[in-house]
Design a protein around this nucleic acid. Sequence first.
DNA 1: GTATTATTGAAAACGATTTTCAATAATTAA
DNA 2: TTAATTATTGAAAATCGTTTTCAATAATAC
Lengths: 141, 141
Amino acid sequence: MHKEIEILDAFIRSKGLRRTPQRKKILSVFLSTEKHVSTQELHRLVRKKFRNIGYTTVYRTIRILLQSGLCREIDIGDGTSRYEHHYNHRHHDHLICIKCNRLIEVMDPRIERMQEKMAKERGFRPTAHRLEIFGLCRECI
Amino acid sequence: MHKEIEILDAFIRSKGLRRTPQRKKILSVFLSTEKHVSTQELHRLVRKKFRNIGYTTVYRTIRILLQSGLCREIDIGDGTSRYEHHYNHRHHDHLICIKCNRLIEVMDPRIERMQEKMAKERGFRPTAHRLEIFGLCRECI
DNA sequence: GTATTATTGAAAACGATTTTCAATAATTAA
DNA sequence: TTAATTATTGAAAATCGTTTTCAATAATAC
């Protein structure tokens, strides 16, 4: 939490924005869950602890967290964006169960390297990527 | 076009649906572009050739093309679904230029195999996947 | 031809996201 | 500390892609 608050404050300062209790509270709630939350879910969690924070503020704070690198957007293709911690969470891909919607985080450095290589061979300079594998998880097979 | 119309007709018959001129026209326009079109873009193209086809019909026909395997959905993360030919178009991944939005289709069987292997090692049975690499294309570097 | 039932297309509903705006609060300058 | 400036808040409304509704129409089966 320490480090994350510092990163947020640094970002806020660098952009001439303002530190507010809402932003700090929203960050703390976001960090307190390991789930992949939508803005609505995050708002619900925030409301449990702090009554008077509106949806719009949660929505806008998530955008700031995205820009500051504290948060990453995930799209499982159901029309709702979800968000996960990004700071101190290494890059990973997702296995998505099409039956129970479970998200499994995976990472294989060999695959990462091959992707990078393939892109560069085509004159492309990769900056980020997203790999999602859909199927059935152990429990749903 | 031949083969694709046959596939659509077979699908329509198998589901007890009905062959209509609209569906045939929409498929022909869809096949006539190699772009990755949204429903709106496709509707615009359809309207150019055939005046009286409504957006809803285009939307619904795309859903049928998806189910019949003639079309594949692409999500570049901007909130709008796009669609590309699927029949006779082998599976591929996308390089997406974050500057000019160009989509480059790529395919590396070694990466495909490693992805499959990784998923299976985790007790997951993969059925499909989506890999998108974001960055700068040759022209935008 | 008639009956049945899917299709069409305009309009409305939907749901997530984004914007608006007046009141409020954080920061800066005096 | 106070005043001035300007970002932030949050409710409500707007937006936008997607999906549903429904009455009229058209495709298929008998």
